[in-house]
Amino acid sequence: MAVHVARDVDDATRAVAVDERAELIAGGTDLMVEINFGRRRPGALVAIDRVQELRGISRSGRVRVGAGVTYTQLLADDAGSAALREASRSVGSPQIRNAGTIGGNIATSSPAGDALPVLAALEATIVVRSVRGERRVPFAEWMTGPKRNGRARDEIIVAAEWESAGPKQTFMKVGTRNAMVIAVASLALVVDASRRRVGVALGSCGPTILRADRAQSFAAGVLDELGWERQAAPTETACAEFGALVASAARPIDDVRGTAAYRSHVLSVMAARALARVAVLG
């Protein structure tokens, strides 16, 4: 086996188990770039892009999105998460959205992965499978560093799951243009009114996707006063305070895409707008 086209997940997990050189390829939007530029030469490849059981979205109770679901699919069927739909639309271009998968984002674990702040804010669980069995990892424990995660070499990401969080959620991203851009900074805000929970997660502002715990507590306090289920706008002062708390959770660096100072500033602006936006959704 040099290149194996997997029929189903069992076939794929066996293929990566028997050949320790094997790497997985789904949409190819990350790995093929590495291959084309000679930065990686996998000794064997297992193609999982046509594994149907990875391509489903189900909403019976918990939401479950198969790892092979593309961003184009997520635009047609947003899996009940408006924030995930917004993030999906900001990914690459039509060509990239037709090929790239949510599982690829989870596997690559770039701090700039557009779907990842949304999964973090939804407190999603990542489901991985190998010939040794199935394992479920909370997203908070998934990423261990930039492009590093807890996936063992023989494990296949099969799905992401979360409890549906309702309509009060959004995703924001800043870059040099709308298409084909790696986020300079991104933010997902999820207000789960039925569970009285606020999730805030930041992309491209640290070595992993970061949560803004103090900002979450502050927003929960604002919503306690406003009413979680109501569509009522917080004061500008409250939004600005929330923005400042979100920015203080970042651990940004200067790089080719932007400075740390700009990232902190843009986070405070995005966060204030995000809170004002989601509070009136219903």
Partner: peptide
């Protein structure tokens, strides 16, 4: 996008498609 083709009727960049797959 200069390598764009349709694969099973979907627009993709052919440079990102592994032929053997």
């Amino acid at each position: 996008g200069s390598c764009s083709v349709l694969m099973d009727s979907e627009l993709v960049c052919s440079c990102l498609v592994l032929t053997a797959g």
